[in-house]
Amino acid sequence: MTQINAFDPPDRELIARTLDGDGGAFGLLVERFQRKIYRVAYAIVRDEVEADTITQDTFIQAYTHLAKFQGRSEFETWLTRIAINRSRDSLRRRRFVRFFSSTDDEENREGFVEPVDDRPDPEREIMAHQLRGAIELAERQLSAQQKVIFRLRHYENRSLEEIAELLGLRSGTVRAHLFRAIHKIRKQLEAFR
């Protein structure tokens, strides 16, 4: 939950003011949640420009549908859901584009993973980079849904219950997706043994 000063107006008040036509109130909501939404979007799409676009789109969509927000969940949760849906759309789009434009260079990255060893700190950074590369490569095998779940768990440290709530799925379904994702990732990471 985002830290809010005791003197700051609560979300509900800002929402009501926005609906009454106070544009400044929505600006405060943006300021309050933009970092968090950007982080969620980045965790899923792993691209700064894309995450920035998704963050902007999330707030614009939230604004245009603000009257439909019934307050059954926190405003932050509602925003996060919008951001996740947009990020998932972005992943699907990217997957579609990659399907038609995959290059030899990308396919040749298979040999990128190297075995882990106990090297000192400076080289550990390289290993971290390699692990990142390995995970990113492995993630390509995942469906958009699996990728979203994996990344929310992996990069955002969200609990299964939280992910289930954000995606509108049952916790068991999230768990199944996550385990399937891990199984695929694990295969890729075997080179680290």
């Binding site: 929505f26 300021e31 245009t64």
Partner: peptide, 15 residues
């Protein structure tokens, strides 16, 4: 963040 907020505010005003 300021630039991002301005972009959002502008888009929202347009909307």
């Amino acid at each position: 963040w300021t630039r991002q907020r301005m972009m959002i505010t502008r888009a929202v005003e347009n909307a």
